[in-house]
Protein backbone atom coordinates (compact mmCIF):
# COMPACT_ATOMS: atom_id res chain seq x y z
CA UNK A 1 0.00 0.00 0.00
CA UNK A 2 1.28 3.43 -0.92
CA UNK A 3 0.26 6.58 0.93
CA UNK A 4 -1.81 9.39 -0.53
CA UNK A 5 -0.78 13.02 -0.30
CA UNK A 6 -2.47 16.41 0.14
CA UNK A 7 -2.87 16.43 -3.63
CA UNK A 8 -6.05 14.40 -3.14
CA UNK A 9 -7.56 17.83 -2.44
CA UNK A 10 -7.18 18.73 -6.13
CA UNK A 11 -9.46 15.90 -7.12
CA UNK A 12 -11.86 16.75 -4.30
CA UNK A 13 -12.02 20.31 -5.69
CA UNK A 14 -12.74 18.97 -9.15
CA UNK A 15 -15.64 16.85 -7.91
CA UNK A 16 -16.96 19.74 -5.85
CA UNK A 17 -16.87 22.13 -8.81
CA UNK A 18 -18.69 19.64 -11.01
CA UNK A 19 -21.30 19.04 -8.33
CA UNK A 20 -22.09 22.69 -7.86
CA UNK A 21 -22.19 23.18 -11.61
CA UNK A 22 -24.72 20.41 -12.02
CA UNK A 23 -26.40 20.35 -8.63
CA UNK A 24 -29.77 21.45 -9.94
CA UNK A 25 -30.13 18.20 -11.85
CA UNK A 26 -28.35 15.96 -9.38
CA UNK A 27 -28.69 17.45 -5.94
CA UNK A 28 -32.35 18.48 -5.88
CA UNK A 29 -33.64 14.94 -6.40
CA UNK A 30 -31.46 13.67 -3.61
CA UNK A 31 -33.12 16.07 -1.15
CA UNK A 32 -36.72 15.63 -2.22
CA UNK A 33 -36.76 11.88 -1.66
CA UNK A 34 -35.88 11.90 2.07
CA UNK A 35 -38.42 14.66 2.66
CA UNK A 36 -41.11 12.59 0.97
CA UNK A 37 -40.21 9.55 3.04
CA UNK A 38 -40.27 11.60 6.20
CA UNK A 39 -43.72 12.95 5.35
CA UNK A 40 -45.25 9.71 4.05
CA UNK A 41 -43.91 7.37 6.67
CA UNK A 42 -43.39 9.77 9.52
CA UNK A 43 -46.71 11.58 9.40
CA UNK A 44 -48.89 9.32 7.27
CA UNK A 45 -47.94 5.95 8.66
CA UNK A 46 -46.92 7.41 12.00
CA UNK A 47 -50.56 8.16 12.70
CA UNK A 48 -51.23 4.39 12.76
CA UNK A 49 -47.99 3.38 14.44
CA UNK A 50 -48.51 5.70 17.37
CA UNK A 51 -45.62 6.38 19.71
CA UNK A 52 -42.37 4.50 20.06
CA UNK A 53 -41.44 4.72 23.71
CA UNK A 54 -42.42 8.23 24.64
CA UNK A 55 -41.73 9.84 21.27
CA UNK A 56 -43.79 10.29 18.16
CA UNK A 57 -42.94 7.96 15.28
CA UNK A 58 -41.68 10.79 13.07
CA UNK A 59 -39.20 11.79 15.75
CA UNK A 60 -37.98 8.22 15.84
CA UNK A 61 -37.75 8.06 12.06
CA UNK A 62 -35.97 11.35 11.36
CA UNK A 63 -32.48 10.37 12.62
CA UNK A 64 -32.76 7.03 10.80
CA UNK A 65 -33.51 8.86 7.54
CA UNK A 66 -30.47 11.09 8.06
CA UNK A 67 -28.26 8.02 8.53
CA UNK A 68 -29.77 6.19 5.55
CA UNK A 69 -29.59 9.10 3.09
CA UNK A 70 -26.04 9.95 4.08
CA UNK A 71 -25.27 6.34 3.18
CA UNK A 72 -27.05 6.66 -0.18
CA UNK A 73 -25.24 9.88 -1.04
CA UNK A 74 -21.77 8.41 -0.43
CA UNK A 75 -22.63 5.10 -2.05
CA UNK A 76 -24.04 6.52 -5.28
CA UNK A 77 -21.18 8.99 -5.61
CA UNK A 78 -18.50 6.31 -5.31
CA UNK A 79 -20.20 3.63 -7.39
CA UNK A 80 -21.91 5.07 -10.46
CA UNK A 81 -20.20 8.46 -10.20
CA UNK A 82 -16.67 7.11 -9.84
CA UNK A 83 -17.27 4.35 -12.36
CA UNK A 84 -18.29 6.80 -15.06
CA UNK A 85 -15.27 8.95 -14.42
CA UNK A 86 -13.01 5.92 -14.47
CA UNK A 87 -14.30 3.80 -17.34
CA UNK A 88 -16.39 5.98 -19.63
CA UNK A 89 -14.69 9.35 -19.54
CA UNK A 90 -11.14 8.21 -18.75
CA UNK A 91 -10.98 11.15 -16.37
CA UNK A 92 -8.63 9.33 -14.01
CA UNK A 93 -6.42 8.26 -16.90
CA UNK A 94 -5.92 11.91 -17.81
CA UNK A 95 -5.26 12.89 -14.20
CA UNK A 96 -2.67 10.15 -13.77
CA UNK A 97 -0.43 12.04 -16.20
CA UNK A 98 -0.31 14.95 -13.72
CA UNK A 99 1.51 14.94 -10.35
CA UNK A 100 -1.46 13.15 -8.75
CA UNK A 101 -1.05 9.42 -8.30
CA UNK A 102 -3.62 6.64 -7.99
CA UNK A 103 -3.76 6.98 -4.20
CA UNK A 104 -4.51 10.71 -4.42
CA UNK A 105 -7.34 10.00 -6.83
CA UNK A 106 -8.72 7.25 -4.58
CA UNK A 107 -8.58 9.43 -1.47
CA UNK A 108 -10.07 12.39 -3.35
CA UNK A 109 -13.04 10.33 -4.50
CA UNK A 110 -13.64 8.88 -1.03
CA UNK A 111 -13.38 12.25 0.72
CA UNK A 112 -15.75 13.74 -1.84
CA UNK A 113 -18.21 10.87 -1.17
CA UNK A 114 -17.90 11.63 2.55
CA UNK A 115 -18.56 15.31 1.81
CA UNK A 116 -21.75 14.40 -0.03
CA UNK A 117 -22.87 12.41 3.03
CA UNK A 118 -22.02 15.37 5.26
CA UNK A 119 -24.02 17.79 3.11
CA UNK A 120 -26.98 15.41 3.01
CA UNK A 121 -26.83 15.02 6.80
CA UNK A 122 -26.80 18.81 7.27
CA UNK A 123 -29.71 19.42 4.95
CA UNK A 124 -32.04 16.74 6.31
CA UNK A 125 -31.18 17.77 9.86
CA UNK A 126 -32.04 21.36 9.00
CA UNK A 127 -35.36 20.25 7.52
CA UNK A 128 -36.13 18.17 10.59
CA UNK A 129 -35.30 21.18 12.76
CA UNK A 130 -37.62 23.34 10.66
CA UNK A 131 -40.43 20.89 11.43
CA UNK A 132 -39.47 21.23 15.09
CA UNK A 133 -38.61 17.56 15.34
CA UNK A 134 -35.17 17.93 16.93
CA UNK A 135 -35.31 17.71 20.72
CA UNK A 136 -31.59 18.08 21.62
CA UNK A 137 -28.64 20.36 20.93
CA UNK A 138 -26.46 17.27 20.75
CA UNK A 139 -27.99 16.84 17.29
CA UNK A 140 -25.48 19.46 16.10
CA UNK A 141 -22.92 16.64 16.14
CA UNK A 142 -24.93 14.57 13.68
CA UNK A 143 -23.29 16.02 10.52
CA UNK A 144 -19.94 14.80 11.86
CA UNK A 145 -21.36 11.31 12.26
CA UNK A 146 -22.74 11.59 8.73
CA UNK A 147 -19.29 12.56 7.46
CA UNK A 148 -17.65 9.61 9.20
CA UNK A 149 -20.30 7.24 7.93
CA UNK A 150 -19.80 8.79 4.50
CA UNK A 151 -16.10 8.00 4.75
CA UNK A 152 -17.00 4.41 5.60
CA UNK A 153 -19.63 3.93 2.89
CA UNK A 154 -17.59 5.76 0.25
CA UNK A 155 -14.64 3.47 1.00
CA UNK A 156 -16.81 0.37 0.74
CA UNK A 157 -18.46 1.64 -2.46
CA UNK A 158 -15.19 2.58 -4.14
CA UNK A 159 -13.73 -0.76 -3.15
CA UNK A 160 -16.62 -2.39 -4.97
CA UNK A 161 -16.12 -0.06 -7.94
CA UNK A 162 -12.47 -1.04 -8.14
CA UNK A 163 -13.36 -4.71 -8.64
CA UNK A 164 -16.57 -4.69 -10.72
CA UNK A 165 -16.35 -6.03 -14.28
CA UNK A 166 -19.16 -3.77 -15.54
CA UNK A 167 -21.57 -1.08 -14.45
CA UNK A 168 -24.43 -3.60 -14.21
CA UNK A 169 -22.72 -5.32 -11.31
CA UNK A 170 -23.75 -2.39 -9.11
CA UNK A 171 -27.27 -3.84 -9.09
CA UNK A 172 -25.95 -6.51 -6.76
CA UNK A 173 -24.30 -3.97 -4.54
CA UNK A 174 -27.55 -2.09 -4.06
CA UNK A 175 -30.04 -4.96 -3.89
CA UNK A 176 -27.94 -7.25 -1.73
CA UNK A 177 -26.11 -4.75 0.47
CA UNK A 178 -27.55 -1.24 0.56
CA UNK A 179 -31.30 -1.92 0.37
CA UNK A 180 -31.35 -4.66 3.07
CA UNK A 181 -29.51 -2.30 5.41
CA UNK A 182 -31.94 0.49 4.60
CA UNK A 183 -34.80 -1.78 5.67
CA UNK A 184 -33.26 -3.78 8.50
CA UNK A 185 -30.67 -1.66 10.31
CA UNK A 186 -33.01 0.20 12.61
CA UNK A 187 -33.94 3.07 10.32
CA UNK A 188 -37.70 2.42 10.28
CA UNK A 189 -38.26 0.46 13.49
CA UNK A 190 -36.32 -0.44 16.62
CA UNK A 191 -34.35 -3.66 16.49
CA UNK A 192 -35.29 -4.78 20.02
CA UNK A 193 -38.29 -6.76 18.77
CA UNK A 194 -35.92 -9.23 17.13
CA UNK A 195 -34.39 -12.19 18.96
CA UNK A 196 -31.13 -11.41 20.79
CA UNK A 197 -29.04 -13.24 18.23
CA UNK A 198 -30.49 -11.30 15.28
CA UNK A 199 -29.92 -8.03 17.12
CA UNK A 200 -26.27 -8.89 17.63
CA UNK A 201 -25.86 -9.98 14.03
CA UNK A 202 -27.46 -6.83 12.71
CA UNK A 203 -24.49 -4.90 14.09
CA UNK A 204 -22.40 -6.48 11.36
CA UNK A 205 -24.25 -4.28 8.88
CA UNK A 206 -22.36 -0.95 8.82
CA UNK A 207 -25.57 1.11 8.83
CA UNK A 208 -26.71 -0.22 12.21
CA UNK A 209 -24.09 1.60 14.32
CA UNK A 210 -24.66 4.77 12.26
CA UNK A 211 -28.43 4.74 12.87
CA UNK A 212 -27.85 3.96 16.55
CA UNK A 213 -25.35 6.77 17.05
CA UNK A 214 -27.35 9.30 15.05
CA UNK A 215 -30.51 8.54 16.98
CA UNK A 216 -28.72 8.81 20.32
CA UNK A 217 -27.39 12.27 19.47
CA UNK A 218 -30.71 13.33 17.98
CA UNK A 219 -32.51 12.62 21.23
CA UNK A 220 -29.61 13.68 23.42
CA UNK A 221 -29.76 10.40 25.31
CA UNK A 222 -26.44 8.74 25.90
CA UNK A 223 -26.34 5.00 25.68
CA UNK A 224 -23.48 2.74 26.68
CA UNK A 225 -22.99 1.37 23.16
CA UNK A 226 -22.44 4.72 21.46
CA UNK A 227 -18.67 4.54 21.78
CA UNK A 228 -18.77 1.01 20.48
CA UNK A 229 -20.80 2.21 17.48
CA UNK A 230 -18.22 4.92 16.82
CA UNK A 231 -15.40 2.39 17.07
CA UNK A 232 -17.08 0.03 14.61
CA UNK A 233 -17.52 2.85 12.08
CA UNK A 234 -13.90 3.90 12.38
CA UNK A 235 -12.76 0.30 11.97
CA UNK A 236 -14.83 -0.27 8.82
CA UNK A 237 -13.61 3.02 7.38
CA UNK A 238 -9.93 2.35 8.06
CA UNK A 239 -10.05 -1.20 6.72
CA UNK A 240 -11.89 -0.39 3.50
CA UNK A 241 -10.01 2.83 2.85
CA UNK A 242 -6.73 0.92 3.04
CA UNK A 243 -7.86 -2.00 0.90
CA UNK A 244 -9.25 0.38 -1.71
CA UNK A 245 -5.92 2.19 -2.03
CA UNK A 246 -4.48 -1.15 -3.15
CA UNK A 247 -7.32 -2.36 -5.37
CA UNK A 248 -7.66 0.99 -7.14
CA UNK A 249 -3.95 0.94 -7.99
CA UNK A 250 -4.42 -2.51 -9.43
CA UNK A 251 -7.41 -1.35 -11.45
CA UNK A 252 -5.97 1.88 -12.80
CA UNK A 253 -2.41 0.89 -13.71
CA UNK A 254 -2.35 -1.60 -16.54
Amino acid sequence: MRPFSWRFFRLWQRDRDVFFRLWRSEGAGAIIEPILILLAFGMGMGAFVGNIGDQRYIEFLAPGIIAAYAMFAASFECTYGSYFRMEHHYTFDAILATPLNVEDITAGEIFWGATRAFMTGCIILAIAAAFQLVPSFWALLIPLVAALSGLMFASIALFFTSIVPSIYTFNFFFTLFITPMFLLSGVFFPLDRFPEIVQTLSWIAPLTPVAYLTRGLFQGEFQPNMLLALGIMVAWAVVFFSITLVTMRRRLTK
Partner: peptide, 30 residues
Protein backbone atom coordinates in the same frame (compact mmCIF):
# COMPACT_ATOMS: atom_id res chain seq x y z
CA UNK B 1 5.14 14.15 -14.20
CA UNK B 2 5.27 17.78 -13.10
CA UNK B 3 7.57 18.64 -16.02
CA UNK B 4 5.78 16.52 -18.64
CA UNK B 5 3.06 17.71 -20.98
CA UNK B 6 1.14 14.68 -22.16
CA UNK B 7 -1.08 14.56 -25.22
CA UNK B 8 -2.68 11.11 -25.19
CA UNK B 9 -4.00 9.19 -28.16
CA UNK B 10 -7.47 8.71 -26.69
CA UNK B 11 -9.85 11.55 -25.95
CA UNK B 12 -9.93 11.89 -22.19
CA UNK B 13 -11.17 15.43 -21.73
CA UNK B 14 -13.25 16.01 -18.62
CA UNK B 15 -16.79 15.88 -19.98
CA UNK B 16 -18.26 17.34 -16.80
CA UNK B 17 -16.40 20.61 -17.31
CA UNK B 18 -16.44 23.35 -19.95
CA UNK B 19 -13.56 24.06 -22.32
CA UNK B 20 -11.82 26.63 -20.15
CA UNK B 21 -12.58 24.73 -16.96
CA UNK B 22 -10.78 21.75 -18.45
CA UNK B 23 -7.64 23.85 -18.68
CA UNK B 24 -8.05 25.54 -15.30
CA UNK B 25 -8.79 22.29 -13.49
CA UNK B 26 -5.85 20.61 -15.14
CA UNK B 27 -3.60 23.50 -14.10
CA UNK B 28 -4.78 22.98 -10.54
CA UNK B 29 -3.58 19.37 -10.60
CA UNK B 30 -0.16 20.88 -11.24
Amino acid sequence: KAILGVIPQIDNLDEDLTVIQNLLTFARYF
